[in-house]
Structure formats: structure tokens, C-alpha cells
């Protein structure tokens, strides 16, 4: 049986059905913590633990799925081209917000983690926690952190932003919908952007564009900021 689970098709199949199942559950009960990706991950981890299957065996198939992260990041460039007309009117302000927001996202998490005396490899793994998972993974590979830790925390950050972002921002006196949209994209990437679309379509577009631009900014500054502090 052990050899059976080493077949790549096992990892591919369980990933696809777990995700499809997660989406069905989300459709039935519209509740934010029932994030399809989170459900799929928890389901697969439970399955592997119950049947005593190693992660490495699962990942023989999983690799074929995660390979598509590379072209997906390129596809974000196409998305940006398609939508950037929408931010043209406020382009400079938008870029300024992403630049400052993006840098504070990296800077504050590094400083807080160091103040709380967390080991360096965790700081390296979490520095890029605000950007979309495929970009965050690439940044972590370059900085010497552990990509799997990055992926887990990035997804958690997205869910946090999705669940509480608009509430926190409104409590802090933010009224502009596009400000909320951009902030969700900058701080909580794609999962936060999904919530921005619920505020308004334009807010969602701002979120998606902010996520793309912050991906580039964070990729450029993270290695240098880490060098500065570690």
C-alpha cells in the first residue's frame, strides 16, 4: 500500500478533490473561516496522518500542482495590464500607498518578531507574509527561510484580512471603499482581495492591482531589509 501512495497520481487526485470539496462546503455555508484552501489543506493533512503517509510521498504528485504557481505569477502581469486603467486617475497616490504599505508590511513583521526573540529562520520565512503565496514562496527561497512555513502563514494572514480587515479599517475611520480595497490587497493579498470585491467592484480591482504591485515591491526590498536586521 505504501508504494501505491507514492504514485504521483495520488497527490494530484487528493489535491483536486480536496479543493473541489472545500469549494462546495464554502458554497453551502457562506462563512469566512470555511476558506476552501484552508479546508483542503486540513483535509489532506488529516488524511496523510490517519493513513501514515509521508509528506514527501504526497508531494510526488503535489509537485505537479504547485508547478503551476510559476506561470500563474506571470498571468498576474496580464491581469494588471487589463485592469490598470481603473487606477489611472489615482495612479500616483495608489503607487505611493502600495510602496509605503508594502515596506511597512515587511519592516514591522521583522521588527516585532525580533523583539519577541523568534529564531532567524522564522523571521526569514515570515518577512514576505503580506504578498500572494506564489511570490512569497519565491522570496522565502531566496532569503533562506522555509517555504512551507511561509505558505501556511500567508494563507492565515489572507484569512485574517478577509475576515476582519474591513471591520478594523472602518473602526479606524477609513471611509473610502477604494482605500479599503487597496489596503486589503497590500496587507492580505488575493484572499483579502476576495473580500474587497464584496465592498465594491472597484475596491476589488484596486485590491488585485495592489497585490500585484506589492508582490514586486516586497520581492525587491525583503532581501535587503532582512540583511539590515539579521
Amino acid at each position: 500500500m505504501h508504494e501505491f501512495f507514492q504514485l504521483p497520481v495520488f497527490g494530484v487526485f487528493i489535491s483536486i478533490i480536496a479543493f473541489a470539496g472545500g469549494r462546495e462546503i464554502r458554497k453551502k455555508f457562506n462563512y469566512v473561516l470555511l476558506n476552501p484552501v484552508l479546508l483542503a489543506i486540513l483535509f489532506i493533512i488529516s488524511f496523510l496522518l490517519i493513513f501514515k503517509i509521508d509528506f514527501e510521498d504526497y508531494n510526488r504528485g503535489g509537485k505537479f500542482i504547485s508547478f503551476f504557481l510559476g506561470p500563474s505569477v506571470v498571468a498576474l502581469g496580464v491581469f494588471f495590464y487589463e485592469k490598470y486603467e481603473a487606477v489611472k486617475q489615482n495612479l500616483k497616490i495608489f503607487l505611493f500607498s502600495v510602496l509605503i504599505g508594502g515596506i511597512s508590511g515587511v519592516l514591522t513583521v521583522i521588527v516585532f518578531l525580533l523583539l519577541l526573540k523568534v529564531p532567524d529562520f522564522i523571521v526569514e520565512s515570515l518577512a514576505a507574509k503580506s504578498v500572494t503565496t506564489p511570490i512569497a514562496i519565491e522570496i522565502t527561497k531566496l532569503t533562506g527561510g522555509i517555504p512551507e512555513i511561509t505558505a501556511g502563514i500567508v494563507i492565515a494572514v489572507g484569512i485574517f484580512g478577509n475576515a476582519f480587515g474591513p471591520f478594523i479599517l472602518k473602526k479606524l475611520g477609513i471611509k473610502s471603499k477604494i482605500a479599503i480595497g487597496a489596503a486589503l490587497g497590500i496587507a492580505a493579498h488575493g484572499i483579502g482581495t476576495a473580500r474587497a470585491f464584496e465592498e465594491s467592484k472597484l475596491a476589488g480591482v484596486y485590491g488585485g492591482l495592489a497585490m500585484c504591485v506589492n508582490g514586486i515591491i516586497t520581492a525587491l526590498v525583503t532581501p535587503y531589509l532582512l540583511q539590515l536586521f539579521l
Partner: peptide, 24 residues
């Protein structure tokens, strides 16, 4: 045609990394 499909399923592609968290 390709970029729309890739973005639509972007979240599926990072599931294996999320599962990898179990090791850590």
C-alpha cells in the same frame, strides 16, 4: 485564455505548500 484560467485556479496551486506545513 491561459492567464484567466491560471488566475482562476491560483489558490489550488498552493495547496501542496500548505500541506507541507505539517512537516514543520
Amino acid at each position: 485564455p491561459a492567464s484567466d484560467k491560471l488566475i482562476k485556479y491560483l489558490v489550488l496551486f498552493f495547496i501542496p505548500y500548505g500541506v507541507g506545513l505539517m512537516v514543520y
